[in-house]
């Protein structure tokens, strides 16, 4: 392969592996939004907590990778339920903007409360994945890239299956469609919403651990930027739609790496946001969303 082709393929690989991180975070984001219509700004910070609990499990409890991942997912699921019960539940019938402010409050609390507990110092993840490199026709990728992408696809498929074909999933969709009607049909909406938060937060934790392993540094503010990006990805794909989050995440990763690859790395985020605004103006419900008509 000539060098330009190699470079293009390398950038595509770079974009896909970054995109799969965004997709992983976006899955949880989009699910919570789909059920409770709340922009959960604390999602990125739950991811940070997940990264730290994974780090704690590996370095202090000396667990291997999979148990550490499970440990982190379970603790974040609990954290998610706790956050929902304490901060969001009382506001279920309040204005959207009040709920958003609460989410911002929770996000700040996790960031700076976390900083009090673990200090602002950057921690390094121990090497968990083998250092294997793959070279195909001059294009480099590593073990972590594959794990990332596969995890994202598998989790998306699992999530999609759960929501579409299981009883809990049906209940979730019912709550999303009409909370009162769901209640009247005998669905325990409180439990369903808690369950949604638990799953969403566990997904965030998984993303956090993977991100920690992948980039090998974690700090208490690590959730802010990826959280925002994942949110953009979720909106891009159509917020509330699970395959949309996946596609949105991968697209965002690709856009970023292409823009950087063209030599405009510092304009990367601006292009991402510009695409977001254009998509919103042309098709407000996102690429995969259905247009809902305003009720009169």
């Amino acid at each position: 392969m000539d060098s330009i082709t190699t470079q293009v393929f390398q950038q595509l690989i770079n974009g896909l592996s970054l995109g799969s991180i965004y997709a992983l975070i976006a899955l949880g984001y989009t699910m919570v939004y789909g059920i409770v219509k709340l922009i959960n700004f604390a999602h990125g910070d739950v991811m940070m907590v997940g990264a730290y609990s994974g780090w704690f499990a590996i370095t202090v409890l000396h667990l291997s990778f999979l148990p550490a991942l499970l440990f982190s997912m379970i603790s974040c699921a609990l954290l998610g339920v706790l956050i929902e019960r304490i901060a969001y539940k009382p506001l279920r019938n309040a204005s959207r903007i009040a709920a958003l402010i609460t989410a911002i409050g929770v996000s700040l609390f996790l960031e700076y409360g976390g900083m009090l507990v673990v200090t602002a110092q950057v921690r390094t993840y121990p090497p968990v994945f083998p250092d294997t490199k793959f070279i195909v026709g001059g294009v480099y990728f590593k073990y972590g890239d594959i794990v990332m992408l596969i995890t994202a696809v598998v989790l998306m498929a699992l999530l999609h299956f759960t929501v579409q074909y299981t009883k809990v999933g049906k209940a979730m969709r019912a709550v999303s469609f009409d909370k009162e009607a769901a209640l009247l049909m005998g669905i325990n909406t409180n439990n369903i919403i808690s369950f949604t938060f638990a799953i969403g937060s566990a997904l965030a934790a998984a993303a956090g651990v993977l991100m920690g392993v992948y980039f090998n540094t974690i700090d208490p503010l690590m959730g802010i930027i990826p959280g925002l990006k994942a949110f953009v990805a979720a909106v891009l794909g159509g917020i509330g739609i699970i395959p949309g989050a996946m596609v949105g995440g991968l697209m965002l990763g690709l856009v970023e790496s292409i823009v950087s690859g063209l030599g405009a790395s510092t304009w990367r985020d601006a292009v991402a946001f510009l695409i977001l605004i254009l998509v919103l103006i042309i098709k407000p419900s996102g690429l995969f969303g259905k247009n809902v008509r305003e009720k009169v």
């Binding site: 060098s3 330009i4 190699t6 470079q7 390398q10 950038q11 770079n14 974009g15 970054l18 980039f215 540094t217 930027i225 970023e256 790496s257 292409i258 950087s260 690859g261 030599g263 790395s265 510092t266």
Partner: peptide, 22 residues
């Protein structure tokens, strides 16, 4: 060539490194 990054918000430098490599 000269490439820019932003400390604190960037963690993925592969796209610009790929450019430099070429």
């Amino acid at each position: 060539g000269t490439e820019n990054y932003v400390a604190g918000s960037d963690k993925d430098f592969r796209p610009i490194l790929t450019r430099i490599k070429s």
